[in-house]
Nucleic acid binder design. Sequence first.
DNA 1: CGCCCTCTTGAGGTTACTCAAATATGGTGG
DNA 2: CCACCATATTTGAGTAACCTCAAGAGGGCG
Lengths: 245, 245
Amino acid sequence: MMAHSPNGLMIRKLESIFSLCEEERQALARLPVQVTTFKADQDVVRIGDRPSQSCLLLEGFTCVYKLTAEGKRQIVAFHVPGDIPDLQSLHLKVMDNSVATVSACTLGFIPHEALHDICNRYPRITAALWRETLVDASIFREWMTGIGRREAYHRMAHLLCELRVRLTMVGLVKDQTFDLPITQTELADAIGASTVHVNRVLQELRADGLIRSKGTQVSILDWERLKAVGDFDPLYLHLRQDGNA
Amino acid sequence: MMAHSPNGLMIRKLESIFSLCEEERQALARLPVQVTTFKADQDVVRIGDRPSQSCLLLEGFTCVYKLTAEGKRQIVAFHVPGDIPDLQSLHLKVMDNSVATVSACTLGFIPHEALHDICNRYPRITAALWRETLVDASIFREWMTGIGRREAYHRMAHLLCELRVRLTMVGLVKDQTFDLPITQTELADAIGASTVHVNRVLQELRADGLIRSKGTQVSILDWERLKAVGDFDPLYLHLRQDGNA
DNA sequence: CGCCCTCTTGAGGTTACTCAAATATGGTGG
DNA sequence: CCACCATATTTGAGTAACCTCAAGAGGGCG
């Protein structure tokens, strides 16, 4: 659907943060990226692993999750094309979470060595990657606030708002509609609710005329009201321009 | 109680991650730090602010919090001496959360300019500070997992485990006892529960012989069982040595 | 001594969970 | 193209965890 050159996706992303000079752009283009495809529901890295590479998501959706001793799962993040789900492993040797595909995915693996190399040479690229991890952290804070202090109905609206904005940034939203190949069980694990409750909350959002869904396609029928219901303020995404276009 | 030189605290912290060379140590010692004291319950920075400095916590406890539209508060992090609660503002211009003191505090403010300067000159210091923000993010993930998937009784045990380990790292635990000047309302905002429920959960932890408290002093009576109840694995804190000494 | 803040207790109500089963959907092979 | 299977969604009913409201009991400080 997109992502011709894996490096191109990354370059475009960094360009949205600051203007790269020619030298930086070429250094990024030279990064060795090993492209691999995954089926849905496969672990990419697991808690306890010590990866020697990070993965750039080129196509599809991934999630970051943790399990409790009781075997319950919490999804702490979804990632969309252009994101680097395990960038943290560049500086934290042992994974404290797992990363799995949600849909079929194309991933580009970049050796840590190459990333360290480019960071040592180009401080602005270091800053941009650091910034990426800071935005991830900001999203964690926002999700935590939702899980701790908002009801499930509002959390679901909030999540849909966030996905709509992030997918817009990478050109995956058309006519207020985007593909969301995420099951209700996965949505439940993300918002900290049961599958049954997510089902009821989604029905309520549909009944209230906020969204519509056909298969994996989700359409937002009333963006302003959905934002209001979700208590959604895109500030925490730290976008250049806000994604309301 | 500690922290003679503000810079000393930071140097000791970074030394626990990697060995600084003399030049790096001196550069850190030269960082301009403006020391200020705060009373309890005061905002240090607010959501929406665009700080030109970051603050190093020298004494006391601070928290990071967000508010929902309904006016409910979620505390997403506590910080202990040696932490830099708003280090993120070095690369994210607008604050997406507020930072407040929980107890009376001493803070050292360091201009972003000086931090950028030292980062440009010493890539290993950049890496260490980046790593700090990654550990913060790891803690967010763990808290989110707790709030989403563990019951309040277990979350409270988990939080006490975490504070015990982090305070041990900075020498603030003696005989399984530490000072915890955090009200039950604040604990409630941190674990995503009501004050009433926190009160009952604490009583249960005491009745179960896991902890004891006198005023703001908390003693851990059975570390192994508290860890088990809290489903606590210190992996996510990414310590050099585990804090079980 | 009295005030304010925090902690504690009780009671009733709500959100959301679990268990269980039925229905729909989508992909696959005959 | 259809039958079949696995997976996902939907529904119902009973239950548990937790919340809100309200009021009383410390406890530290001016």
